Amino acid sequence: MMMTSPSSSCSPDDRMICQSHDFQTMMQIFYLRLAYTTCSYACSPVELYGYVAVRDLLNPMRNYIFNRPRGDPFVVGHDGIIKMTGPKRGIRMEAHVLIEFDLKIIKKGGGEAEDDLQLIDCVASFSHRTSRHATANRRRIDGDCGAVDIMYALLDGAAEATVQVGISDLASLSQDNNGLRLRAAAFYTKQLSGQFDLFDGIVAAEASELSKTVVAVVKESHLLVALILSQTGGGTDRPIVQNCCTFPVQKHGNRVSVFKFGLATVEVKVTWSTLDIPQSRLGPNCFESEHMAAEGVEYDGD
Rank of each mutant, 00 (worst) to 15 (best):
M2V: 08
S5H: 09
P12W: 13
C18D: 04
H21S: 05
Q24P: 00
T25E: 11
Q28D: 03
I29D: 07
L32V: 00
C43Q: 12
C43P: 00
S44T: 03
P45I: 00
Y49R: 07
Y49Q: 07
Y51Q: 07
A53D: 13
A53H: 12
D56H: 05
P60F: 12
P60M: 12
N63Y: 02
N63D: 15
Y64R: 12
I65H: 15
V75W: 03
G77N: 12
H78G: 10
D79G: 06
I81Y: 14
K83Y: 06
G86K: 08
K88L: 11
G90K: 06
R92Q: 02
M93K: 03
M93N: 02
L103I: 13
L103R: 08
K104S: 15
K108R: 06
G111R: 00
A113N: 04
L117F: 12
Q118A: 12
L119F: 04
D121K: 11
D121G: 08
C122D: 07
S125L: 07
F126G: 01
H128Q: 10
H128R: 07
R129S: 07
R129Q: 08
T130R: 13
S131E: 06
R140N: 05
I141W: 02
I141N: 01
D142K: 07
D142G: 02
D144T: 08
C145I: 09
G146T: 00
A147N: 05
V148P: 06
D149I: 05
D149C: 09
M151H: 11
M151E: 14
M151R: 14
Y152V: 00
L155I: 05
L155D: 09
D156Q: 10
A161F: 12
Q164K: 12
Q164Y: 05
V165Y: 10
D169C: 10
L173A: 04
D176W: 03
N177I: 04
N178G: 15
R181I: 03
A186L: 10
Q191F: 14
L192I: 14
G194Y: 01
Q195R: 09
F196P: 02
D197G: 14
V203T: 10
V203I: 11
A204E: 10
A205K: 13
E206G: 08
S211Q: 11
V214P: 09
K219T: 00
K219W: 01
E220S: 08
E220K: 01
H222E: 12
H222I: 01
L223S: 08
V225K: 03
A226L: 04
I228A: 13
L229F: 11
G233N: 07
G234Q: 15
T236L: 13
D237R: 09
R238T: 02
P239A: 05
Q242D: 14
N243S: 14
Q250M: 13
Q250G: 04
K251N: 05
K251Q: 11
G253I: 01
A264R: 13
A264E: 13
V266S: 11
V268R: 05
K269D: 11
K269L: 15
V270R: 06
T271D: 03
T274P: 09
D276F: 01
P278K: 04
L282K: 00
G283N: 04
N285C: 02
H291M: 08
V297Y: 13
D302Y: 15
D302C: 15
D302G: 15
